[in-house]
Design a protein around this nucleic acid. Sequence first.
DNA 1: CTAAAACCTGACATCAATGTGAGAGGCAAG
DNA 2: CTTGCCTCTCACATTGATGTCAGGTTTTAG
Lengths: 133, 133
Amino acid sequence: MRIGELAQRTGASIRSLRYYEDCGLIAAERSVSGQRRYDETAIAQVVHIRELLAAGLSTNTIADVLPCIADPSAQTSRLTSRLIAERDRLAAEIAQRTATQAALQQIIDTAPPLNTSTDQSSAAIPPMTNLTY
Amino acid sequence: MRIGELAQRTGASIRSLRYYEDCGLIAAERSVSGQRRYDETAIAQVVHIRELLAAGLSTNTIADVLPCIADPSAQTSRLTSRLIAERDRLAAEIAQRTATQAALQQIIDTAPPLNTSTDQSSAAIPPMTNLTY
DNA sequence: CTAAAACCTGACATCAATGTGAGAGGCAAG
DNA sequence: CTTGCCTCTCACATTGATGTCAGGTTTTAG
């Protein structure tokens, strides 16, 4: 498939896909005229990359980590230390966010005395609340 | 105290403290000559701000949220909806990071056959491992 | 009083991921 | 062949928090 379709099917912008390629995160075949061609596996790859990005990893880090994911035996000790550092960073971020989440929840619970006059906006909220908890 | 001392005692740079003030996150008295003066409570305030920043909230969001923390009854329904949105965002980020953390851990566990030749770097790791788990 | 150290404002730089636009070429359908 | 859509590369813009530098004032120590 070409880049437009891959973008559509992954939710990534075309710009981002080219950027991922620049960073060495995905490889693309090229047609004679120079257009990028992707096979079906590219979709999962891109989705995976975007999950890692959403988890706060940088493209540089992802570039380092991806080979280990494909083949864990490819780990060097340097790479392992990198993985551990990233895991620790994630743990710290999770801890910080969990604490803040609880703090926000507490404030929300100490909610205002349900003011029915201007309360129109909070009526739109419940759908968002049906998540994860 | 003056800005330099506050910076030293909070770990924030002077630049950041002025930035927080620009964003309306902290207020500072001014001496006749225009220098910022802070009381002891500023320390906790700055630390708190930095915790929220570390949790991924933007200064704009923090500016909106801070008054609720000081006085939960100050919540408008619009603000409550903002709080809920932020909480949900945190929940999503936590979920994503938790999943990625587990994935990294799994790769780490599938570690290489402890290569004693180039393994000098992994000897420096254990101290970092004594964290959170 | 003087020199050093700390502070002021203002402006420009940085990083990372992404947006956006220009100018040119590729490709399928009419 | 032409029209329209897709793609190419290159380059500059954006956002947010922070760094850094410059030129000028204030405070403090000797």
